[in-house]
Design a protein around this nucleic acid. Structure first.
Lengths: 172, 172
DNA sequence: GTATGTATGTAATAATATAACATGTCAATA
DNA sequence: TATTGACATGTTATATTATTACATACATAC
């Protein structure tokens, strides 16, 4: 899927690079528009709760726990029991609009929904920013390594902890 | 670290290949012996609880939850509160004798303690077996990809879900 | 407008993990 | 050998994350 706006938006030029300075409002609006289009195309329903959860995740490039999301939802008049959040988050994950970060027991909006992608997540241990890096070749290599021992991968999770560029400077 | 017994033990020839048939008693005894040696060399104390937890993990190539381990410990007269299990598991992980499998919220014994290694975990979705595959090149590639965007990786987690050789046959 | 599938709300509880503090063990050494 | 200090274990309590089960509401197709 391609989108039509100008190419000088850092968020869209490098949507996987949460660390870069970018027009986040644009980055958010764009992701939402693409989500709407994708769901319409699939015939899946991006209902109010689901859409709102996606918006909440899109507010930041940090990962959010299900209960943080739930608190926000409850404050806005949606249900206030855990399944309300988990169901919406699961839906978003199933449809490629969000990712679960296992290391953090948390969730983050997908930065390029609709594109086939095999992301790794780069998690800054200092500022908690999460960036989604496209690492198709890395995953292919992993699949090959598995295949060599007869194991067939269905889905893989790559998550790395470290320091983002900004925090590296701050640490020095 | 190298060890001296004969080379015809599949478990030792391919310690990362939990799926292969092997003399598991040997595989276990060997891992324990290496753990003892390593801890002695480091001056770290492989106390009774810790050693017992390692033995328990070594009984199987599946991952075990902290509470499963705890149940076993309690039955053997150790403390029966969660910290007893978590502390031992954390110790083993810190010293490279066990790994945490985030996808499963569970733990598994390290199959080649003492060797510098950057493993990926291959988790069979059907039989729950967990194999530790050495994928140094894959991790190097991941680190390089991160570095290209200015991110410096400290530790990375690679976990893959799929079907082990046996379960592929069973499914066919 | 009724039936059917899907989505949401709610209550209850399960599963995983940690904080805080008390007690015990062990080895070095005054 | 008595003392100390560091580390390890035990225990209580609680926090955090996630699911099961069931009731209600909503949307769509017929």
């Amino acid at each position: 899927m391609t989108h039509s706006h100008s190419n000088d938006c850092p968020g869209c030029a490098a949507p996987d690079l949460a660390f870069a300075q970018h027009d986040h409002g644009h980055c958010t609006a764009d992701a939402l528009a693409r989500a709407d289009a994708l769901m319409a195309a699939k015939g899946a329903r991006l209902t109010p709760v689901r859409r709102r959860v996606l918006e909440i995740l899109l507010e930041t490039h940090r990962a959010m726990g299900a209960y943080d999301v739930l608190t926000r939802l409850a404050a806005e008049g949606f249900g206030n029991q855990p399944p309300v959040a988990y169901r919406a988050l699961d839906f978003l994950e199933d449809h490629g609009l969000a990712h679960r970060i296992r290391r953090l027991n948390a969730f983050t909006a997908c930065m390029h929904p609709g594109e086939a992608h095999a992301p790794a997540f780069l998690i800054c241990s200092r500022c908690n920013m999460v960036a989604e890096a496209p690492v198709a070749e890395v995953i292919t290599a992993l699949e090959q390594a598995a295949k060599n021992r007869g194991f067939q991968i269905e889905r893989s999770t790559l998550e790395a902890i470290g320091l983002c560029p900004t925090c590296q400077k701050a640490a020095a």
